[in-house]
Design a binder for these strands. Structure first.
Lengths: 154, 154
DNA sequence: GGAAAATACTCAGCGCACTGATTATTTCTG
DNA sequence: CAGAAATAATCAGTGCGCTGAGTATTTTCC
């Protein structure tokens, strides 16, 4: 008694959605490279030479998590990590040859997987699906980063 | 070059959504009890005496994860765990007094948090949001559990 | 130019999530 | 009834994700 219906709880649905995706990724894309690892690789293919913090910002991972993901990609030889000679605090990252190849290979599989994952939705529904999730996620992330310190704000 | 747009990747969006929710939960609901822990507690309030495996099935957690979540709730004294005298393999679970009180308290806060989380969406959009996510998640989970062994199937 | 503040990264610690292997118990079947 | 199969839980191992504390380096400002 007094229990709630979890199917109206967005957090619970988000978790289930993410788990379902995780499993599908594992069977259809790769057992080695994870989805967050692919996201990092993807960012570095687009913008080689980014520093670690910026990559984390791009893919939505905090400083600690991005460090671990990168160290795994580094260990597998998929990216190069060098100290910025201009600024000794930064690590500059770029994909290796193999990193680029891996990214290309997984891009194809990922597209296939997305088709299967989104199969239950019509084309119109997919658009709405992306839009709604993105708006909710953006708004919640906005609550976290209280708004960039704009001139004349305190 | 050749990089994809992650904002059209449902897995990436799902992860971001879940992370955003995690942060909001932490600030608005509880720093002690997590969302999965609340889900377990919620299930046990509704159906006290369930075994561990069934609870996991209800909330969508695999055998290993549910074991850890339950051991934490047990350690905090929020549930009782006893061996089923009828079937020595099973652990039967029920919330303690404090578990019920905690659940009641968090139910209120969770409702408030959901309001904030879903604030960017209109009432109609929320309905669609739930429906779309649920359909995608259900379908993907269905791929995993290849369909219950119905009579006359192989 | 040197102390203080800011920035990038690392480290320890906790919790969720999965797989594969192992153990204990029950059920099924010859 | 005994051996085999199924079931519930546990354990070891890997990876994502966060916070708080600590280190190194650069920038800011008196």
């Amino acid at each position: 008694m007094a229990a709630v219906d979890l199917s109206t709880h967005p957090g619970h649905l988000a978790r289930r959605l993410q788990q379902a995706h995780y499993l599908l990724w594992n069977t259809m894309v790769s057992e080695e490279i994870t989805s967050p690892q692919f996201a990092v690789l993807n960012t570095l293919v687009a913008e080689p030479g980014l520093d670690q913090r910026t990559v984390g910002e791009r893919v939505g991972l905090d400083r600690s998590t991005i460090a671990e993901v990168i160290s795994r990609l580094d260990r597998r030889g998929l990216l190069d990590k060098v100290r910025d000679p201009q600024d000794g605090r930064r690590s500059l990252l770029r994909p290796t040859e193999e990193g680029v190849r891996t990214h290309r290979r997984l891009t194809v599989r990922t597209a296939r997987m997305n088709q299967v994952f989104l199969a239950p939705l019509s084309a119109d529904e997919r658009t709405v699906f992306f839009d709604l999730i993105q708006r909710v996620a953006d708004a919640a992330e906005g609550l976290r980063h209280p708004a960039e310190p704009v001139a004349g704000r305190r």
